[in-house]
Structures are given as structure tokens and as C-alpha cells.
């Protein structure tokens, strides 16, 4: 069963594990569930986050200084009360270092059915890791952009049929300022058509309720990361959630 396939438009929030405090995660998950968020991406902090803008970089560096690592994260997730689906998002190196098999076993035991590893390409995944991931029931979600060609979009949608396609709003690192205009929405809609039954979520640079609604009008849902973490840093996140989820 695909946890990310629902008969409604969805909203997902990205948080960094270990941010702002080492043990913030379960409190965060409960809060996000209360506000009606559909699923949560839990970021594994890394020292060199290539695809991330300043906000997520900063949250990663705070989390690493707080002592967050994969062993601690898995321990904390064992204690979660929230029933929200979660997936892990992070760069490959901490996962390789932890051990792929051990990582997948932990995901399996914690009912984590998907991960996003932005620096792992489809090609390398298929050559080196796919069999192992699927054996543990973990189905990564892969990134595409509006400029990805149709053949590759199809291939991505096929590999992601048990998770979702992560459509990057525009060709830029996380948290960039942009306006989602008619032109973008049209291309998202076309991509959704190509992806068929595989859910499609748009992330990177989603900030406001109107962004969320615009995106939801053409694909399955929206993902917010930097904007939420920015509010969290200022302790304005509950107010922000209320405005986004109302």
C-alpha cells in the first residue's frame, strides 16, 4: 500500500532531526499531526548539504552540533506516538556510514516506507541499491524538475509508484524566493499527467497558503521546508501552521 496516495490533496512539512533541540522530533511530529499535516519528511543532518539553501544548511549545522545522528534518530522515532506517515530525507554519506542494511532494517521496523536521498541518482540506485531497498519494503522517492524530459519523468514515476515523485518547483536550491505562476502550474500539470497514478508533490520554495493551494490544484500536494524552519527558529511556527492548514 502506498501511504502517500490518498483521495485528497495533501500537505507535507520537512523538519530537520535534532533541530532546534536534539529531542524536538516527537513534539514536532505531534504538533504537525494536530494541525492536519498529511506526512512529514524528517531530515538527516549532513555537514555538506549540496542542494540546500541557507535555512536548511543552518538547521543541519545546529542539529549536528546538538549531537544528532542516525542512531539517535532511530531511537527517538521508536518512541513516537504520532501516527503520521514519515519518510527520511538526507544525503547519502551518513546513510552509507551507518550501513545500508542496518538503515533499511531500521526503516522497516519503524514503518518508514520511503526515503529521499537527493544525491542518489536513478541510475546508481538501480545498479547498486534497488534490490536491497525493495527487499526491506523501502521505496525511495526521486526528484525531478520541470525541465526533466518525458522519458525520464516516466521512468521516475515507475520507480516511485510505491512512494511519490518529488517535483522540484524550479531549478534552484531549497528555500529560494519565487513566484509560482501560470506557466509553472501548467508544466506541473503536464508532469502529473505523465506520472499517471504515481503521486506527485511539489517542493522547494513553497511558502504561503496560496502557494500550497496553487500547487494542490494541479498535483497531489505541496511540501514546505525552509519556510517552516524559518518560523520555527523564531518560535512562530504554530501560528504559521494555523495559517497554512486552515
Amino acid at each position: 500500500m502506498n501511504l502517500f496516495n490518498k483521495n485528497k490533496k495533501q500537505l507535507s512539512i520537512f523538519i530537520t532531526a535534532g533541530y532546534p533541540m536534539i529531542n524536538s522530533i516527537n513534539e514536532q511530529l505531534n504538533l504537525l499531526e494536530e494541525h492536519g499535516v498529511d506526512f512529514v519528511e524528517v531530515g538527516i543532518p549532513f555537514s555538506d548539504p549540496l542542494a540546500d539553501g541557507p535555512v536548511i544548511q543552518e538547521s543541519s549545522s545546529v542539529a549536528i552540533n546538538n549531537g544528532m545522528n542516525l542512531s539517535i534518530l532511530f531511537e527517538q522515532l521508536k518512541d513516537r506516538n504520532s501516527t503520521l506517515p514519515i519518510l527520511l530525507m538526507g544525503y547519502l554519506n551518513p546513510v552509507l556510514n551507518f550501513g545500508i542494511t542496518k538503515f533499511l532494517k531500521n526503516c522497516n521496523a519503524l514503518n518508514i516506507t520511503s526515503v529521499i536521498l537527493p544525491d542518489l541518482s536513478l541510475e546508481i540506485y538501480e545498479r547498486l541499491y534497488r534490490k536491497q531497498f525493495e527487499a526491506y519494503g523501502v521505496y525511495p522517492s526521486f526528484l525531478i524538475t520541470p525541465s526533466t524530459d518525458e522519458t525520464r519523468v516516466k521512468r521516475t514515476a515507475d520507480i516511485c509508484k510505491n512512494s511519490f515523485v518529488y517535483l522540484v518547483s524550479n531549478n534552484a536550491t531549497t528555500g529560494g524566493q519565487k513566484n509560482i505562476g501560470e506557466k509553472q502550474l501548467l508544466s506541473y500539470r503536464q508532469i502529473k499527467t505523465i506520472c499517471g497514478k504515481t503521486p506527485v508533490f511539489v517542493g522547494f520554495g513553497i511558502q504561503s497558503k496560496s502557494d500550497v493551494e496553487a500547487v494542490q490544484s494541479v498535483v497531489d500536494g505541496a511540501i514546505i521546508g525552509s519556510s517552516y524552519l524559518k518560523k520555527l527558529a523564531r518560535n512562530e511556527h504554530e501560528k504559521y501552521l494555523s495559517s497554512i492548514c486552515s
Binding site: S47, D48, N69, N93, P94, L96, N97, F98
Partner: peptide, 19 residues
């Protein structure tokens, strides 16, 4: 072994995979 700056190589890293 580990991944940094786009390639799999040998890396100076701590026991949690931070470079």
C-alpha cells in the same frame, strides 16, 4: 569510503558520516 562533492571516494569523516 563515502560520498562528497558528487563522487564516491575515500573521505575524512567522523563515525556518523559527517565530513
Amino acid at each position: 569510503p563515502g560520498v562528497l562533492h558528487g563522487s564516491m571516494t575515500i573521505l575524512m569523516q567522523d563515525k556518523h558520516g559527517q565530513v
